[in-house]
Nucleic acid binder design. Structure first.
Lengths: 166, 166
DNA sequence: TCAGCATGGTTGCAAAACACAACCATAACA
DNA sequence: TGTTATGGTTGTGTTTTGCAACCATGCTGA
């Protein structure tokens, strides 16, 4: 079991279109990439009526601005691990949708201080509700005692990847 | 704890750019979407020299063809949960890169029977090696007894999402 | 003090992924 | 044998996202 691959013995094999889908021999990454497709598509649907549907960046940016008034675009870029142009365009959409405001920072004339608008805060609350709803539907089958462990592993993996990346 | 949100108590909070990143209150989906970005970008880098870098579709399609000679594009589309045009274009790239062959199915004159070429099989093996390598680097910190459980939860979530989707 | 470098954001590309509609060919069915 | 269903392809448009180049402001050190 030291080959970087983990196998489960008790779960039934994945069969889709008549084929056993063990393409990647139980690689975590394959599941993460596949789950991402589902989760993102599903969220896009649930948020279709909100101006932040599509793409992972807008939601995180909106919630960050909601939680941290005065946050700067470059800080959001660091969280998203995107370059500044991409982040700037995400903020463009938030601002032009009337969800956020872009002011000049008092500390630094180059930087922008972002803040949420009333409409933006309302959308952020709706986003949180949608996410909670999805969590309940997709993950409620996980036993309560396993949920914390699952989240803990996700969290630690996330931190590990951030470290390795930079 | 019945609000669809799970919290961990023992892990340290995520702090990035001086902000606590609990934007989504520990939502599984946020971690999955973030991890996907990492994993995919990292794989793109590791596979930069291979003709299947970029996008989740090409790798899965290649491995499916490698594992199931004679598989049809529509079956691959079902696994990928993409529409046929998208899948067809993925196969286009594999074929024009000389990794797969597209023949007419013997059973059904409309359908194509895909098969791997020698070059394609070689690339598939390299892909598997790269994935194994990444698994080792990113997930080896998970205790062996936790790995099986983690994978099991991922697997069951995947199946659940497939069901709910269709 | 001010020249040179660093930092924060923006604009201009370009590439790639992906969905929808429309189309052609073959199969299945009644 | 006509009609409908299925398997794939082409056309088109949208969206995401990265890189390079640019401008403006801040910082530093001779």
């Amino acid at each position: 079991m030291n080959d970087g691959i983990t196998r489960t013995v008790d779960d039934p094999p994945l069969v889709i279109a008549g084929h056993r889908i063990d393409v990647l021999e139980g690689a975590f990454s394959w599941y993460i990439r596949s789950l991402d497709s589902f989760v993102s598509r599903d969220l896009d649907e649930r948020m279709a009526h909100l101006p932040v549907a599509r793409g992972k960046g807008k939601v995180t940016a909106l919630l960050l601005i909601d939680d941290y008034p005065g946050i700067r675009p470059s800080e959001i870029a660091e969280v998203l691990m995107r370059d500044r142009p991409s982040t700037g365009r995400i903020i463009d959409t938030l601002v032009s949708a009337g969800l956020a405001r872009r002011d000049i920072s008092e500390d630094d004339q180059r930087a922008h201080a972002l803040s949420i608008t009333d409409a933006g805060h309302a959308v952020a609350e709706q986003v949180r509700a949608v996410v909670r709803q999805q969590e309940a539907e997709f993950f409620d089958f996980i036993a309560p005692e396993d949920r914390a462990q699952f989240l803990s592993i996700l969290k630690r993996t996330y931190m590990r990847m951030r470290q390795k990346w930079q």
